[in-house]
């Protein structure tokens, strides 16, 4: 018993690298310790760490069932999947015919798919220009507020919509801007012809961007506020002493200080270029019509689960995922070439 305790104690000493901060980790004579840890036989380590494995198990199972099995299940994209073969999806999967790339061929000939593809890219591009810079701008304004109480109040208010569901956000917009909403009501009272932006396909891209801004512009400032607070204040003082005005300080100190964060978020956004949101579009699809509002994610839903054509939807989903993965790798590569850290660089 005593030996076991001792081994546990030694083990605990080995398992911890010291402090949580990377510099401390690097500064310790880590190599020797790793070398010693390697020599501990697996059985001893299992006896030492079995409780940790037990702790990890529930999450492991959940991810296995609801993430990894579906990821592998993507192979039905290469099948003529028929849900009525057998009693459950597994049997249906085993009995369905393999048809290779047939689903993809159909997909690429489908004009509805290309509509969705175009809409997705258009919305991504539009939001990159009209949404992405707003949190940066707002964060700089908030950061320069002197009254911490006022800043806290504004932050509290503008973060709030982030926690609303899309059903709520769209409901808010319908109540304010819809055909029976406050805007139309006010315009009617003023004797004007009310316009209903909620059902107009031509302005849909502006509408969804406005909704996204309303929901998340405040939340988006958090990461920029954090980056702003790490900029050395002495830089500003030195620049001011050298005669730099507030716009020059903004350009030469603040924005370079934010650069790594901006690049990181741009990469993530580009990697996600094919996902522009899902519930938001599904909720408004019937109001403005498929032509304007179908995006790739809603396409997958409407052409598979809603119609029972599972293999087809899986193919569309797989195509989107594959392109998305390529995009994020490419964006990361570009970031590395520009001398930024990107997302995969290990510290």
């Amino acid at each position: 018993m005593s030996t076991r305790k001792a081994s546990v104690a030694v083990g605990s000493d080995l398992t911890r690298p010291g402090g949580p901060t990377p510099p401390a980790r690097a500064a310790r004579p880590a190599t020797r310790r790793t070398g010693r840890a390697r020599r501990v036989p697996l059985r001893t380590r299992l006896r030492r760490d079995w409780q940790l494995l037990v702790m990890v198990a529930p999450g492991f199972l959940l991810l296995l069932v609801f993430s990894y099995v579906p990821i592998v299940g993507n192979v039905i994209a290469f099948q003529d999947y028929n849900p009525y073969l057998g009693d459950n999806p597994l049997q249906a999967f085993l009995h369905s015919d393999w048809i290779g790339f047939g689903q993809f061929q159909l997909l690429f000939e489908d004009p509805a798919f290309w509509d969705a593809f175009r809409n997705t890219l258009a919305i991504t591009a539009f939001q990159l220009v009209f949404f992405f810079p707003l949190p940066i701008f707002l964060a700089i304004v908030l950061h320069n507020l002197l009254s911490s109480r006022l800043r806290g109040f504004i932050q509290t208010v503008v973060y709030l919509p982030h926690f609303f569901s899309w059903v709520l956000v769209v409901s808010f917009f319908v109540a304010m801007l819809g055909g029976a909403g406050l805007l139309a009501q006010t315009m009617r009272e003023a004797g004007l012809e009310p316009w209903n932006v909620m059902t107009n396909p031509d302005t849909f891209i502006i509408l969804v961007t406005a909704e996204a801004v309303w929901k998340d512009v405040g939340w988006g400032t958090i990461v920029f506020l954090a980056a702003l607070s790490t900029i050395d204040q002495n830089l500003y003082e030195a620049a001011a002493a050298d005669g730099a005005g507030r716009w020059r300080r903004l350009w030469h100190i603040t924005l370079p200080g934010l650069r790594p964060v901006i690049v990181l978020l741009l990469i993530l956004r580009l990697g996600d270029a094919l996902s522009v949101g899902f519930e938001q579009f599904l909720l408004q699809r019937d109001a403005v019509g498929r032509q304007a509002s179908e995006v790739l994610d809603t396409f997958v839903y409407h052409f598979s689960i809603a119609t029972g054509n599972y293999g087809y939807g899986a193919a569309a989903g797989l195509f989107k995922a594959a392109v998305g993965l390529c995009l994020i790798l490419a964006a990361n590569k570009i970031a590395h070439m520009l001398g930024e850290r990107g997302i995969y660089s290990r510290s």
């Binding site: 990890v56 999450g59 492991f60 991810l63 069932v65 609801f66 993430s67 990894y68 099995v69 579906p70 990821i71 592998v72 299940g73 993507n74 039905i76 849900p83 459950n88 999806p89 597994l90 999967f93 994610d297 997958v300 839903y301 598979s304 689960i305 599972y310 939807g313 899986a314 989903g317 797989l318 995922a321 993965l325 994020i328």
Partner: peptide
């Protein structure tokens, strides 16, 4: 194992089939 699902989202259609299959 735990971090990978951060990059690869579980696809909709197979996930639907898994949940209904269970």
């Amino acid at each position: 194992y735990f971090l990978l699902p951060f990059l690869v989202y579980p696809p909709l259609v197979p996930k639907y089939l898994v949940v209904t299959g269970l």
